[in-house]
Structures are given as C-alpha cells and as structure tokens.
Design a protein around this nucleic acid. Structure first.
Length: 330
DNA sequence: AAGTAGCGCAACCGCTTCCAC
DNA sequence: AGTGGAAGCGGTTGCGCTACT
C-alpha cells in the first residue's frame, strides 16, 4: 500500500492560486527561505498542501524564471537533451536555468512533439521519433545506427571540448566572449522575459525588492542546478555557509553558456540538425521506465563529468563511453 | 454574435527516491 | 537493515483563452 496522498485532508484548497496566497507564500519564503515545505502551510495559514506550495514556488513564484516564448536555441537544446536524456525534464531543465521542468515538459508536449512529428512525416526516413514504439525497419536501424553513433560521439566530444575550454583557467576570455556575443541568456528581451513575472504587480514589486535585498550573493537568474533544487535554493537563502552555492552557480552558468556554444558549433557543423535524427536517439529515452544502462549509468557519468568542478579532473569520464559499449545496448 | 474546437499552461496525482531515525 | 515521512519527478487533467465556423 502506498502512502495516502498528502492532500487528502479536508479543508485543503485546490485549484488556481490567488494573488493573496502568492503573497503569503512569497513573504514566508522571503523570511525563512524555501525548504521544509511541510511547515509552510501551517506557518503561513495557507489552506494548501505542502506539495502545492512547493510546486507553486518552483514553477511560478521563484525568482529567475523566464516565461513566454522559447528561443530557437532553447528549443534546440530541449530537442537535443530530450534525445539524450529522455523525458527527464528536471535534468533537462538544469541545463536551461530560467526554465522550469514543468515549462519544458509543457513546451515539449504542446509544441516540439508536434514539430518533430511533422518533420517525421515530412521526411522519408521517419527518423527521430519521440515515440520509439513506432517501429522502423531493422535495415533502417542498421543503416542509421552507425551514423547516429558517430553523431553522438561527435556531439559528446564537442560538448566536452567546449566545456573544457570554458572552464579552462588559461582561457578566461572564452566565457566572456560567449557572454558578450550571444549567450542565450542575453537573448531575453526586456519585457519579454523578465527575471520574474507574477500574476500580480504587487507580488512582482515585492519580489523585485526582495531579490535586490536578499539575493545579492546569488543573482536570481544565475544557476540552473541550484535554482531547480529547493535545497540549493535554501542554501542560497541561508547565506550558504559552505560557500559552494556561489561556485555552483558560476559553474552552472558557465555550463549553460558552454552548451550554447556547443549548440552553435553543432549547428554549423551539422546543418541538418533540425532534420530528424535516427531512431537510436530515442534509445536514450527511458521507454517504459526500463532502466536503460546508457541513460542511467553512462549519462549520469556525463552529468558528473559536466558538473565536475575541475574539468580536468573529470574530463576522462566520457573516454569510457565507447561506441562499442553503446552498441551493447542496442 | 454565438457556438465549438483546439491549444496552452497551471496545477494535481501518484509513484519514486532520498534521508533521518 | 528496515521503516516511515518528506521531497522530487513525470504524467495527466482541467480550465481559460483564442481561433474558427
């Protein structure tokens, strides 16, 4: 038997949040920081379950959320990351600092899926399906497998190279160049993607003041990983005794930019990026939640490698990922 | 102008994972 | 090592808005 749902209690309010509730929640978090969600309803008097509070905060109220149209770069990143990571929206969101997993998930389900389906039907090969159950002929698989493997290997290599360069202390200009050129964070037009948008102006003003006053050490739009994790958010709020969050923010930010450069180079070297990929791309997807060895083991290595502080320390993780190993899972 | 269909997004549900005891 | 509770995550739902007839 599973646990009873936390929202079974009578008197728990459901449905859309009112501005008043938002203000209550925001002012509480402003004071205590995110985390310990269990205590939030009790302490705020909100008639919401803790889960609902957390969701409202992470998906809507927290600073640094970008809303509205996805840029082409974000779109490409999502498509590529989805192919690599499957429907692990939280993991994908960690590479898109200003987007929530919910947002990305919604965008995928409403826009990208259709887009890719169109591409799929438009192309003869019917490749790059988001639904792996749509089978292709084995001969097709045999043909495209090698191509896909090479492509993946190239992708990984390029990402690795880009990150190494980005994190290399010898090349401090790398990141600043990216920043000044076209990091996707800078794509945000004023008004189109404010660092924080709320349904009410009051909350917006309140939070802006809060962000100025309370979040100076960790700028709102800074971190992917930290922003996505309430624990880490709490860390940022609670003066971050370890000093790690700032570092993590920086690394994460740089990583994002690195991905930006990666996708740009990817674009230039793979003009057919927008074309459907091979079906093998979706073998990363955790079809039927089966623990795919590559997605669970090797991609966690990838993530470890990507997030590893000293790029030199972790840069050999991917050396272990060979095509032969990949082939074992095909 | 009214009715209807489609779309987008916020929020919910339930399962899994993590962690403290 | 086992257990229970809290948090995290992904899938799904439902409502409001918009476009179309």
């Amino acid at each position: 038997m599973g646990r009873p749902p936390c929202c079974d209690k009578v008197g728990i309010k459901k449905g859309p949040w009112t501005p008043e509730e938002d203000i209550l929640l925001v002012s509480y978090i402003q004071e205590h920081g995110p985390g310990n969600w269990r205590a939030v309803p009790t302490n705020t008097g909100l008639l919401r379950c803790s889960k609902s509070c957390r969701l409202r905060w992470t998906n809507y109220l927290r600073p640094g959320i970008k809303r509205g149209n996805f840029t082409e770069h974000e779109e490409k990143m999502i498509i590529h990351l989805q192919a690599l990571l499957g429907n692990r929206w939280a993991a994908i969101a960690s590479y898109l600092p200003q987007r929530t997993d919910n947002d990305i998930k919604n965008y995928w389900n409403t826009h990208l899926k259709k887009k890719l389906n169109k591409l799929q039907t438009g192309s003869s090969g019917g490749l790059y399906r988001d639904d792996f159950s749509a089978s292709s002929s084995t001969s097709q698989q045999a043909i495209s497998r090698g191509q896909w493997e090479r492509k993946l290997q190239t992708d990984i290599h390029m990402a690795k190279q880009a990150l190494s360069e980005a994190l290399s202390p010898e090349k401090p200009s790398c990141l600043s160049e990216l920043k000044s050129s076209k990091g996707y964070l800078s794509h945000a037009k004023p008004g189109q993607a404010s660092s924080y948008i709320s349904s009410t102006e009051n909350i917006s003003k309140m939070l802006k003041g809060w962000m100025r006053n309370s979040l100076k050490p960790a700028a709102p739009a800074e971190s992917a990983a930290t922003q996505n994790s309430p624990n880490n958010m709490a860390g940022a709020d609670s003066a971050s005794s370890e000093g790690a969050p700032g570092k993590a923010n920086r690394i994460s930010n740089e990583l994002t930019e690195t991905f930006e450069s990666f996708f740009e180079s990817f674009d230039s070297s793979n003009s057919d990026f927008s074309q459907p990929m091979s079906p093998e791309a979706s073998f990363f997807q955790d079809e039927d939640k089966k623990p795919s060895p590559i997605s669970q083991g090797q991609l966690s290595m990838l993530e470890k490698w990507l997030f590893d502080d000293g790029s030199s320390q972790g840069k050999d993780y991917l050396s272990d990922i060979t095509l032969d190993e990949n082939a074992n899972f095909l």
